[in-house]
């Protein structure tokens, strides 16, 4: 492979283009207003949010990998956080045990959703939408019934402060300390990215999930247990949604019904910008992180310029639509090239 070819393949890699764009925008916003480079008040929280939202992006990505959607990611996050919060409040469990209990609830909800989809043969969109409605009612009901007016579990397990407020700066190896801008919250996100990336790129499970997403009938005829894979994908989606919900609760310092209510759009933005196909069969795990980071830089960058929340929404919507249209234009060009060849 010669150099020109290498450059060409690099440029056509969505992740590379996305990273370039992210870095460029980062520098651009910083140059326009140096307040953007403030480590403590801008960059640290930005990366902390990116960590949480990447995980919710991965939750959506798992559903997208088999060509499904999960509209209930936000509510699954809320229920997991609810479970973890209740465990801390009433059972006084340790931080880790509460986390596992929350994750277990998220995974079970996901598996249940997958099971309903398989058994009823109803399309995933509507099942997860209905699931979203039902869980919304459930979550609000529980908070109101158990916590009354506060509508939150406020017990903070030991160690929660550490996760929400400290950075890698505390860890030093041979006199070199971690960067101050990397929050501890990045650790679970990195683990999630690594594990999910590993599953999809290297393992049989990942291949089977993608086969199911690429062509369900062919996968079935090739002896892949497609029903079980649909359940697996939704289980993973629920588990990751739960993780994101608990991460957000840690960041906020309390467990409320509002957790996850803002997750739906970011859950699609990350994977779609990163290059995950909506139709299934192809995922971009690292791209999800970069895509999430990009949207947060746009959001934070504009907000540092003093632009209000409403314009941020407009900008993000435009970014999503542009990214989608670009994908389509690219596909059209490929089609034209293909036609020329045959």
């Amino acid at each position: 492979m010669n150099v020109a070819h290498k450059i060409k393949s690099l440029v056509s890699d969505q992740r590379f283009v996305l990273s370039l764009l992210t870095v460029a925008l980062f520098i651009f916003f910083g140059l326009k207003n140096s307040a953007f480079f403030n480590a403590d008040f801008v960059i640290y929280p930005l990366i902390r949010d990116a960590a949480t939202l990447s995980v919710i992006g991965l939750a959506q990505l798992c559903a997208l990998s088999i060509g499904h959607l999960n509209l209930a990611v936000g509510r699954m996050a809320a229920v997991s956080a609810l479970a973890a919060g209740a465990a801390y409040q009433y059972l006084h469990v340790s931080l880790l045990l509460g986390l596992f209990m929350g994750l277990f609830v998220g995974a079970s909800l996901g598996a249940l959703t997958g099971w309903i989809i398989v058994k009823s043969q109803v399309n995933a969109f509507i099942v997860t939408l209905a699931m979203d409605f039902a869980l919304l009612g459930f979550v609000t009901y529980i908070y109101v019934t158990f916590t009354g007016a506060t509508t939150a579990f406020t017990t903070k397990p030991a160690g929660m402060e550490f996760w929400r407020n400290t950075s890698w700066h505390q860890y030093c190896v041979a006199g070199v300390c971690g960067p101050k801008i990397f929050p501890m919250m990045l650790v679970p996100a990195i683990i999630a990215i690594a594990v999910i990336g590993f599953i999809f790129s290297k393992t049989r499970l990942g291949r089977e999930l993608l086969s199911t997403g690429s062509n369900l009938r062919a996968a079935k005829l090739s002896g892949i247990p497609v029903d079980r894979r649909v359940i697996t994908a939704h289980l993973m989606s629920g588990l990751l949604a739960g993780l994101a919900g608990i991460m957000l609760a840690f960041t906020n310092g309390s467990f409320t019904a509002a957790i996850g209510s803002q997750f739906m759009l970011p859950s699609f933005l990350g994977p779609v910008l990163g290059g995950t196909l909506l139709a299934g069969g192809s995922v971009a795990v690292l791209g999800t992180f970069i895509g999430t980071l990009l949207t947060l830089i746009i959001r934070q960058g504009l907000s540092v310029q003093g632009i209000g929340l409403e314009t941020l929404n407009i900008a993000l919507g435009l970014v999503l639509l542009t990214a989608l249209s670009l994908g389509q234009i690219q596909k059209m060009f490929t089609a034209i090239r293909m036609r020329g060849r045959t």
């Binding site: 929404n313 407009i314 919507g317 989608l324």
Partner: peptide, 8 residues
């Protein structure tokens, strides 16, 4: 996408 824009 349009929903996000319109909310803004």
């Amino acid at each position: 996408g349009t929903m996000t824009i319109l909310l803004g």
